[in-house]
């Protein structure tokens, strides 16, 4: 059975954290390039992108594991590079699957985390118990970490992230390695934490995680933020009420100007493949879509393919990030 926290909900207000033109280089590799976004308090935001997009780098920056090469990162208004202790005091982190010392009990680790997070000695036991009960690992946490399964270990580590009542949870693939039932349990837990008013920043490959937990999603590719989209409150898909997107492919690499002229000023144009593939965003129904296509052809654009792009998360992911990585 899952015990959800009985903490009174926070009153969301202001910004939980923000990145402003944050770049991170590893030698000649540009892991992040001038990434700018912010997350409001109480918001649950998904962070999607293929392997090597820079998701984990972003999370490492947010959890103080690495420093930005340039740009400004603020946690609760505080820059971790300037006051690490204060900045990280409001954050609970689960980045990657950290290795653990196999000869240490889960409870030992959680009590150490509680001590470092400043939980008073007389409240430490209760804080650990509360976190382990929330994640349904009160009993497994008494065992040696080396004896736990991947799923149980992730839950024990997630319990560690919850200790100290953090306002922000930064989670990297929290459901990775879990069986479907455990994954479902964890999503329920995350939804419960969201309802308590905690900010959740969730990096994942699993679109279902985002659909079920988050209200907004950010797309990252090759270290650059490719855009964002809302996720509808019912947790099923991004809002379908809004602009339509039409993918237009042309064999003429010089057609960019003609596309713009033919489509008109009210149509948003984004090059998904430089010169040959365009995403046209417009408001209207299918008739408007046909009119737009006719206008393009009449305007001298050699359309070789035209395809409406769906507004569900999977389609959005493929549109923003790339088809091969969608799961």
């Amino acid at each position: 059975m899952i015990f959800l926290s009985s903490h009174p909900p926070h009153v969301p207000s202001g910004e939980a954290f923000s990145l402003e033109k944050v770049s991170k280089d590893y030698g000649s590799l540009h892991a992040l390039s001038e990434v700018t976004f912010s997350v409001r308090q109480g918001e649950a935001v998904g962070y999607l992108g293929p392997n090597g997009a820079g998701k984990t780098t972003t999370l490492k920056l947010l959890s103080g594991l690495t420093r930005p090469t340039s740009g400004t990162l603020r946690l609760d208004g505080v820059e971790p590079t300037k006051d690490r202790r204060r900045a990280l005091s409001s954050v609970g982190v689960l980045v990657e699957t950290p290795g653990v010392l196999p000869y240490v009990r889960g409870r030992d680790l959680l009590e150490h985390i509680a001590e470092v997070k400043g939980v008073p000695l007389n409240e430490r036991g209760a804080a650990v118990l509360h976190a382990t009960k929330t994640l349904d690992v009160a009993e497994p946490s008494e065992r040696l970490l080396g004896s736990l399964s991947t799923g149980l270990l992730r839950r024990v580590l997630l319990a560690g992230a919850l200790i100290g009542d953090p306002k922000v949870l930064v989670l990297d693939e929290p459901t990775m390695g879990l069986d479907p039932a455990a994954r479902n349990d964890l999503r329920n837990i995350l939804r419960g934490l969201k309802k308590e008013g905690r900010t959740i920043f969730l990096s994942t490959h699993l679109l279902e995680d985002v659909e079920e937990v988050c209200e907004r999603v950010l797309f990252l590719r090759a270290g650059r933020l490719m855009g964002e989209a809302p996720v509808s409150p019912d947790g099923q898909a991004p809002s379908s009420v809004g602009p339509r997107t039409l993918l237009v492919r042309t064999s003429d690499t010089t057609a960019r100007e003609r596309v713009g002229r033919a489509a008109g000023p009210e149509v948003g144009i984004e090059e998904s493949e430089p010169g040959t593939e365009f995403l046209l965003t417009f408001r209207g129904d299918e008739r408007r879509q046909s009119e737009l296509l006719r206008a393009l052809i009449a305007g001298g654009v050699p359309v070789s393919r035209a395809q409406p792009v769906g507004s569900d998360l999977s389609s959005l992911y493929m549109q923003k990030v790339g088809r091969e990585e969608a799961t």
Partner: peptide
């Protein structure tokens, strides 16, 4: 990674 992400 666990120790480095704590407020210390």
């Amino acid at each position: 990674v666990i120790a480095f992400a704590l407020p210390q």
